[in-house]
């Protein structure tokens, strides 16, 4: 031990060296004209276009060059990254519950959803089916999904925001039809009996369906469905719009703590407000999201089939309640998988 003490001074020197090595790698806070938008998977193409449009708009208005960095991933994963310290200036996620979770860790005000027009959702979407060309299995409606021998592809609602919309859409369809939550649960259970694989994210499911040739029907966001036709060929797949589906509202919000730290509040506000402008709404419609503005909706009406849409609020209350009833541990999703 004596031996050890003689060398403690050198040991401290070693520690100091090591710490400084790590220390130099730490980075300075980003400049005030840079934003980080933390988003979910399917919005990559949308925000690529929106960011370019906003940069042009901002340059024209203020003369400043703005850089918007993007991070994409599963909605829940992204929310958790923000909670754990990913310094997002704005979050644009798949469902309100994920932003609620960020608000719970005091990164933004709990009334965030009232701060921007229309529940802070500048665009909406819905849930549709993608089938193989010619619709060989004749899938038209939710009831067709429970038929024996139909392979249904949907991601895991525990890890994917999109999958929660899928789940609630199916549930809501049956509950509206029968008025019974019990029957809705049995119906959803029957659907999941036909699910051969639960990918962790919406994009994983799409690839399972398109590239690996598994399943007969993919339950997907409407915007993803259009993207699939563009990417993988309208000669191979087609979209089937069920008569009834859910109004999916992916919300956006400013992360107060981070914009105050970066000094980017004004820019972040301008960015999110920009999403409501006619120019941005046009881009939204072009990317197959349903625009909020009546003008854009009218212009692109032919693109969006007439589906009877119900909201989460209509049937499930707030997103927090929906999450608790259906997707938390022991919720209905766990119950339908209990052997």
């Amino acid at each position: 031990m004596k031996h050890f003490h003689r060398h403690t001074s050198r040991l401290t020197a070693g520690i100091a060296l090591f710490s400084s090595l790590l220390g130099t790698a730490a980075q300075a806070a980003p400049a005030a004209n840079t934003l980080l938008n933390v988003s979910y998977d399917p919005t990559r193409e949308l925000y690529q276009a929106e960011n370019a449009a906003f940069a042009g708009y901002w340059k024209q208005k203020t003369g400043q060059t703005v850089t918007i960095n993007q991070s994409h991933g599963g909605s829940g994963k992204q929310a958790r990254a923000v909670i754990d310290g990913l310094e997002a200036d704005v979050v644009t996620l798949a469902l309100a519950y994920d932003i609620d979770a960020i608000a719970d860790s005091k990164l933004l005000a709990t009334n965030w959803q009232q701060r921007l027009p229309q529940n802070s959702t500048p665009y909406t979407s819905t849930i549709v089916f993608v089938v193989r060309k010619g619709n060989p299995k004749g899938i038209r409606n939710w009831d067709d999904l429970v038929k024996p021998g139909i392979g249904v592809i949907t991601p895991n609602p525990k890890t994917s925001g999109g999958a929660r919309w899928n789940y609630l859409a199916a549930w809501g369809y049956k509950q509206k039809q029968t008025g019974s939550a019990e029957q809705a649960k049995a119906f959803v259970k029957a659907i999941f009996k036909n699910v051969p694989v639960l990918d962790t994210g919406a994009r994983g499911s799409t690839l399972t369906f398109t590239q690996r040739g598994l399943g007969d029907v993919l339950i997907a966001w409407e915007n993803e469905a259009h993207l699939i036709l563009n990417e993988f060929g309208a000669d191979k797949f087609e979209i089937v719009a069920p008569p009834v589906s859910i109004l999916a509202e992916p919300p956006v919000a400013i992360v107060d703590r981070n914009v105050d730290k970066h000094g980017t509040r004004k820019l972040a506000e301008a960015y999110l407000n920009f999403l409501y402008t006619p120019q941005a709404q046009e881009i939204i419609a072009k990317n197959s999201y349903r625009p909020r503005s009546a003008a854009a909706a009218k212009k692109y009406a032919s693109q969006f089939p007439n589906i009877k849409l119900f909201t989460v609020k209509d049937l499930f209350g707030t997103w927090r309640q929906a999450q608790k009833t259906h997707f938390s541990d022991g919720g209905t999703f766990d119950q339908i998988y209990t052997p």
């Binding site: 829940g76 890890t159 997707f327």
Partner: peptide, 9 residues
């Protein structure tokens, strides 16, 4: 583990 993390658990 990943699933639980994604639910903030």
């Amino acid at each position: 583990i990943m699933t639980k993390l994604d639910q903030f658990d």
